[in-house]
Design a protein around this nucleic acid. Structure first.
Length: 588
RNA sequence: GGGGGCGUAGUGUAGCGGUUAACAUGUCGGCCUGUCAAGCCGAAGAUCGCGGGUUCGAAUCCCGUCGCUCCCGCCA
């Protein structure tokens, strides 16, 4: 006799008359003295169990002792509920189980917070009792969704001829990129493994190995500070393909994402096919390479309209090589002085000197302390350029292009939230392409790869590497969803002379290159196919599918902001014996 | 490394210099045969995160510290 014959969630009117054995947790109890109702919960749902002393005095007596979260097994008859007593809020609400036997499989202490409702609870408590938090409906839903997404991805890619290959967790530290998590070697005193930041090099080696189409649900580790969308360990869908150009990679990924959103989630895909923006266009229109395309409020540059004007904030910024750019806040003319000050304070967070605002009142008159510095003609040309309507507020940042773009991009998103324009039922995916191949590192006075050192430059831009490297574009592509970068990839360099040229450009001597990437460079000499790939973040994507505000909600056992596991208490000290074995001395 | 927010019965909150720290919910006990956030009656439950200071008097003001969280830096 199994512990359960049916799940709690599956019972329907079709089961009426059947004897069933259920097992699960006491979700709620309603004790009427004689009649006792128990909502019994398992992973599949909730069903009402009735204990009637007339049916079984024995079972009823046990039911009186039940408390929330007790684990019980119930044997009883599935019955139609009396007329008018159905519960439409419950999928099993047409029926109930008349209990004849009950076994308490385990008792439970009163939980430290409500399991049976999704009310907010202090994050410390949730993380400390994560196994209880995971019992709650919200987390059950998220974790199950995550499973469905990963399952769908596996099936989809297998059908496309990909094979899944595991790569090592103990690997080699590379000096570039994020800080590594290190693992001391017992057998090799003073030496360390590093946990992979991503399986980047290994997947390229798998292309050299001839697997042609590889994927992995890969755990990645980066020892950097946390954010709401960043954990020290996270999961990537790692993909690499041989004999492809970027169109092939983007095609697979676009079909995959379209299918998974349409078939697994309840979110609405806003664009099909995904729009493509060049990096330059994204920066011009949105000030960022990860724009949220669910709403407008695009950035507009007005540098040419205010060059040489009497307003020195504008004219001096422009003379120094800066730009004047802004956006239009619909209905923002009614904002109070305090609200406008808050906007200015907000952009200062991102390094902007301040925010210049022009309000257009209901009569179309400009209200602003700045207006007196600008001619009527200039004001009118700004209003036309911004397409401002009476009642709108225009907000401008005059600064270096990088700061103006960043500040306005953040302001746009913040206002989008404030104005309710970021509907999380909608998913706006887009591709960003034609990234700059190199970015100038001001501190080190050298070029850095904008993606990584194995990304290929655009074929037609290869000559630029010798003449004007900053103008060269790379074969890189990012997938963006609702303002989050959810995937980044590139076609890789597979020819030695290009690779050497790139190493030279980024200031890496052949010796340094050999020390760091020798295994890869050596492999490349044994017949490397053209190849490229991409690495979508699974956690972030599931977070968006689930409509959750942070990544912890879709990870079963996440770390806190300070990278601790509050449940198990990791990290923790280790014994002197363990340290000695690893040849480590602490210096605290 | 830096800045902001939060920390008060088990939980969620109120109180923001002055009697016995309030409310809801949960918990425990009693009543109750159709509830489904069951209802009614009663009871217990807080060294106000921790340490120091100011004050006649501190949950309340100040300083420090710890924890959670958001952000900047960081994240090829």
């Amino acid at each position: 006799m199994p512990l359960k014959s049916h799940t709690c969630g599956e019972l329907r009117s079709a089961h009426i008359g059947q004897m069933v054995t259920l097992a699960g947790w006491v979700h709620r109890r309603r004790d009427h003295g004689k009649l006792i109702f128990i909502d019994l919960r398992d992973r599949w749902g909730i069903v009402q169990v009735v204990f009637n002393p007339d049916t079984s005095a024995e079972a009823h007596a046990v039911a009186e002792t039940l408390r929330l979260e007790y684990v019980i097994q119930v044997k009883g008859m599935v019955c139609r509920r009396p007329p008018g007593m159905e519960n439409p809020d419950l999928e099993t609400g047409e029926v109930e189980v008349a209990a004849q036997e009950i076994t308490v499989l385990n008792t439970a202490k009163t939980p430290p917070f409500y399991i049976n409702e999704d009310t907010p609870v202090d994050e410390t408590l949730r993380l400390r009792y994560r196994y209880l938090d995971l019992r709650r409906q919200r987390m059950q839903r998220n974790i199950i969704l995550r499973h469905q997404v990963v399952k769908f991805i596996r099936d989809f890619l297998c059908n496309e001829g990909f094979i899944e290959i595991e790569t090592p967790i103990l690997f080699k530290s590379t000096p570039e990129g994020a800080r590594d998590y290190l693992v001391p070697s017992r057998l090799h005193p003073g030496k360390f493994y590093a946990l992979p930041q991503s399986p980047q090099q290994l997947k390229q080696l798998l292309m050299v190995a001839g697997f042609e189409r590889y994927f992995q649900i890969a755990r990645c580790f980066r020892d950097e500070d946390q954010r709401g969308d960043r954990q020290p360990e996270f999961t990537q869908l790692d993909i690499e393909m041989s004999f492809v150009d970027r169109e092939d990679v983007m095609d697979v990924v676009e079909r995959l994402y379209t299918a998974v959103i349409e078939q697994v989630s309840d979110r609405q895909l806003l664009f099909k096919p995904f729009p493509r923006l060049t990096y330059a266009e994204a920066m011009r229109r949105f000030g960022t390479d990860s724009p949220d395309l669910r709403f407008g409020m695009e950035l507009v540059e007005i540098s040419d309209l205010v060059v040489g004007c009497d307003f020195r904030v504008f004219s001096e910024t422009l003379a120094a090589g800066g730009i004047v750019k802004g956006l239009k806040v619909p209905g923002g003319a009614s904002y109070s002085r305090k609200q406008v000050d808050e906007l200015a304070e907000f952009v200062r967070t991102f390094g902007a000197q301040g925010l210049v605002t022009l309000a257009l009142d209901e009569h179309g008159q400009v209200r602003s302390p700045t207006a007196k510095f600008l001619s009527e003609e200039t004001l009118q040309s700004i209003i036309r350029r911004m397409e401002a309507q009476p009642g709108d507020l225009m907000a401008f940042v005059a600064d270096r292009p990088s700061i103006a773009n960043e500040a306005l991009a953040r302001l746009r998103v913040m206002l989008g939230d404030k104005l309710g324009l970021r509907d999380n039922k909608l998913l706006a995916l887009c591709w960003i392409v034609d990234f700059p191949f190199l970015v100038w590192n001001e501190q080190e006075q050298r070029w850095d790869p904008s993606h990584h050192p194995f990304t290929a430059p655009m074929d037609e831009d290869i000559p630029l590497l010798d003449t004007d490297p900053g103008q060269a574009r790379g074969k890189q592509y990012d997938l963006v969803c609702n303002g989050y970068e959810i995937a980044g990839g590139s076609v890789r360099i597979h020819r030695r002379e290009i690779q050497e040229k790139v190493f030279r450009l980024i200031g890496l001597s052949m010796k340094e290159a050999r020390d760091q990437f020798g295994h890869l460079l050596e492999a490349f000499e044994y017949g490397t196919p053209p190849h490229g790939g991409i690495a979508p973040g699974i956690d972030r994507f599931v977070m968006l599918l689930a409509g959750e505000p942070n990544i912890r909600e879709v990870i079963a056992f996440p770390k806190s902001q300070s990278a601790m596991d509050l449940m198990a208490g990791a990290p923790s000290p280790v014994s002197p014996e363990q340290l000695k074995e690893l040849h480590l001395k602490l210096d605290l």
